[in-house]
């Protein structure tokens, strides 16, 4: 593999991921506003926000871990975006997808969250720490049905690599969401929790509480974090599309598929009221777990 080619494609992929992710967030704000009978900001508002954060002059410094926190996030987000296969069959956009192991991707996600949690911890803001404990508790809720769905798929197709899963789906012209419907349902149910959206937004509790992990970050830190967040969001959507919806062969198709999934997350978020942490965990261990067990039974029987 050519190292320069890899670097170039990594930069292009990251930029595309950034642009798409931030646009999605803008669209989300617009849709939520329309649903609440507001006019809402323009779609490109989040670009302006990030630009504004980066041009802030003063900078609040709480210590080393606080300084490093956004970096863990962005390192994790970009690495996952490079590992998840974005384009099936494209030599240029191969990136690190030969490393596309599902367990690896699942374990990379806490890398950013841990860094963020440490940064939040050093600020000394109790509300932020409470947000982190909520986030970690929810992680237990969402991760278990999700990993069960993934394991069911892995065993069914005899591979642990998301790249292989995309290849199998493309070659057989099928989507895993049809061949293992229960695994798909389980993953779909926990999807809002993985985006900290929908009824599972107790971590950041937007709109009425000045709390949540982000509250002590401002200016460039928040700008970096927002960029990382949007890249990470797009990477997660791509992962979901790759595993269950056949991946894609070009960027347009990828955007259509990921946006459809994202619309689902937005819609659930608009409809459902927020849950308390323990309610959220119980709900995540309810139907999603049932679907996941059904997926296991399906794998065991067929």
């Amino acid at each position: 593999m050519n190292i320069w080619n890899l670097l170039l494609s990594a930069i292009v992929t990251t930029l595309l991921g950034f642009i798409i992710g931030v646009t999605y967030m803008g669209i989300r704000r617009k849709i939520v506003a329309l649903a609440q009978n507001r006019y809402g900001p323009p779609i490109y508002q989040n670009f302006l926000d990030i630009l504004k954060f980066w041009s802030k002059e003063s900078n609040i410094y709480h210590g080393v871990m606080h300084h490093l926190a956004p970096l863990w996030m962005i390192a994790m987000a970009i690495t996952i975006l490079l590992i998840v296969p974005t384009q099936y069959g494209s030599k240029f956009f191969e990136n690190l997808s030969f490393n596309g192991d599902l367990i690896l991707i699942l374990y990379l996600m806490p890398f950013g969250q841990l860094g963020m949690a440490l940064g939040v911890g050093q600020t000394g803001n109790p509300n932020s720490a409470i947000g982190v404990t909520r986030g970690l508790s929810l992680l237990v809720g969402s991760e278990i049905p999700f990993i069960m769905a993934l394991i069911a798929v892995m065993i069914q197709y005899h591979t642990t690599s998301v790249t292989d899963l995309v290849r199998i789906q493309q070659e057989h012209h099928t989507w895993i969401m049809f061949s293992s419907p229960f695994a798909f349902l389980a993953a779909l149910c926990v999807l809002p929790a993985m985006f900290h959206a929908g009824p599972y937004e107790v971590i950041i509790a937007p709109a009425e509480l000045a709390s949540g992990p982000m509250s002590e970050f401002g200016g460039k830190y928040l700008g970096t974090m927002m960029s990382a967040g949007s890249i990470f969001m797009f990477a997660k959507l791509t992962l979901f599309v790759d595993v269950f919806m056949g991946g894609s062969t070009n960027w347009l198709w990828l955007i259509v598929k990921t946006f459809t999934v994202y619309l689902f997350v937005i819609a659930v978020g608009i409809i459902m009221p927020r849950l308390r942490t323990e309610q959220a965990i119980r709900r995540l261990w309810g139907w999603p777990l049932v679907f996941a067990i059904l997926a296991f039974i399906q794998v065991a029987l067929f």
Partner: peptide, 21 residues
């Protein structure tokens, strides 16, 4: 590759962020 990717992005943004902030 994983370590390299994480470290490169981390260090790159560390330099930028420290420089700017």
């Amino acid at each position: 590759y994983i370590a390299a990717s994480l470290v490169i992005v981390f260090v790159l943004f560390l330099i930028v962020l420290t420089w700017v902030a």
